[in-house]
């Protein structure tokens, strides 16, 4: 799997590159700014890029803009945005059009190597990854007449995993239940929240996030 990394903190970039190399990823390029990343995306066939949201020269939104640009021009390339803070508003910007092949994670997640690598593979394969903090923030959001209160604790767990981008198989593995059981929970949740069923798993992520955000 071919990866490019844009991260201005050298220590972290080297560590990440070493980790991916050891895990059998092909780190095609690593760079410290958005322009170089865009150049690499144009030059090499890539499966996924990892981009720090805060990049030089102004350290404001260069990383996010690069990510959106890659999503627009190279939809086949998965994009994982890393940040030292995660924001609901940014997640929504990143997922505005589709949740396919995109992820947004807190930088700290890198050190949970197994989870991190599986997230990266999921993104490269067209799936979605949303940081748990985003989902928990949205879930804890106060609502008048909260429809989430109608969910059972198990359904709530499934909802969280759905929102974080897990597939039915992923949810089944995580909760140690069958895929069929997951499918039953999902349709029950959609019924209780009044959401139309959406088909693909990445569309499901968007629908659930949009519901939680409203």
């Amino acid at each position: 799997m071919r990866v490019a990394i844009a991260e201005d903190a050298v220590l972290l970039r080297e560590g990440l590159s070493r980790l991916l190399g050891e895990e059998g990823f092909d780190v095609v390029g690593q760079c410290g700014n958005a322009d170089e990343l865009l150049l690499k995306v144009r030059s090499y066939p890539l499966d996924v890029v990892i981009v720090d949201i805060r990049l030089p020269p102004t350290y404001s939104d260069e990383g996010l803009r690069a990510a959106l640009e890659i999503r627009k021009r190279h939809p086949a390339v998965g994009v994982l945005v890393l940040s030292q803070y995660v924001e609901v508003g940014l997640a929504m910007k990143l997922l505005a059009d589709s949740a396919e092949g995109v992820g947004y994670l807190l930088k700290d997640r890198i050190s949970d190597v197994e989870d991190f690598l599986s997230a990266l593979r999921r993104i490269a394969g067209g799936g979605s990854v949303v940081d748990p903090i985003i989902v928990s923030t949205l879930l804890s959001r106060r609502r008048s007449d909260d429809p989430l209160e109608r969910l059972t604790p198990r359904e709530r767990e499934v909802l969280v995993l759905m929102a974080e981008g897990s597939s039915n198989q992923g949810i089944a593995d995580r909760l140690v239940i069958t895929v069929r059981a997951v499918e039953k929970y999902v349709s029950s949740i959609f019924g209780k929240l009044g959401l139309p069923s959406t088909g693909t798993e990445s569309r499901r992520v968007l629908a659930v996030l949009a519901f939680l955000r409203a």
């Binding site: 903190a9 972290l12 560590g15 990440l16 050891e22 030292q84 700290d108 890198i110 050190s111 949970d112």
Partner: peptide, 13 residues
Amino acid sequence: QQRLIALSLELSL
């Protein structure tokens, strides 16, 4: 923050 993240990654490697 960057150093701590890099350190954490190093530990997990």
